[in-house]
Design a protein around this nucleic acid. Structure first.
Lengths: 114, 114
DNA sequence: GCGAAGTTGTAAAGATTTTGTAAAAGCAGG
DNA sequence: CCTGCTTTTACAAAATCTTTACAACTTCGC
């Protein structure tokens, strides 16, 4: 369903992060799957709440946010990178892109002994 | 059908664990076989119940769990290792992997007599 | 065919995990 | 600076799993 160099999400419910299998609860997985399915797109909170929780439009709850918190924590240092907040709208799953390598010159060997 | 350094499962119904022949009942074997056939994958309870028991989707029963319990007990100390619970979803058969040996120096023979 | 032994399903009690949410604090935006 | 949204944490409720015991059913041996 989704794959990049850090994260792999299967339809079956298995999620692998940096070659470690993540233990996600059912709701956590459903949320992650929903976001990953719409990777790169902003998914409004109402859509997330109705799809994952079956809540009516306009329901005011912090349930979603707490689950986002729990997911981010399980995604370690990249939690905030993968799941981004769009203020007042919802969340967006951002595909991981390795930073473009900077152009560098090779340091002289003696300088490297520091 | 499946083999690792501890467990061996034959199509014929024979199961060997640490060189001892396990005596599994018919249902126990069918369950183990189904799990082992999908080793590494999460198998939802509904799939297990319909495949092994012929139950309808959505049937609420603890039959499966009790059989898992019986199986785990027959697998001795590795029962929990081989058959893992995926909360709210089902079970997963995990292949046994020996822990990667740590790099060590060889102990002198005299020290090993302790 | 019958009794014994084994297998299987399930109830029920207890344990464990998941989930929802309150509340306080932090932060974004106007 | 204020309002409203997000984050965080803790806790209780809900859901699920585990365990054990027992009854019913099936199989086996005589």
């Amino acid at each position: 369903m989704y794959r990049d160099e850090h994260l792999q999400i299967d339809m079956s419910g298995q999620v692998e992060f940096d070659t470690r299998r993540l233990t996600l609860t059912r709701k956590e997985f459903e949320l992650l799957a929903m976001l990953a399915r719409n990777a790169g797109e902003i998914v409004p909170r109402d859509i997330l709440l109705s799809t994952v929780w079956g809540y009516c439009e306009g329901t005011r709850t912090r349930t979603l946010d707490v689950h986002v918190r729990r997911l981010r924590r399980k995604l370690g240092g990249l939690g905030d990178t993968y799941i981004q907040t769009v203020f007042g709208v919802g969340y967006r799953f951002e595909r991981y892109r390795a930073p473009r390598p900077l152009l560098t010159y090779s340091m002289p060997a003696f300088a490297a002994t520091a």
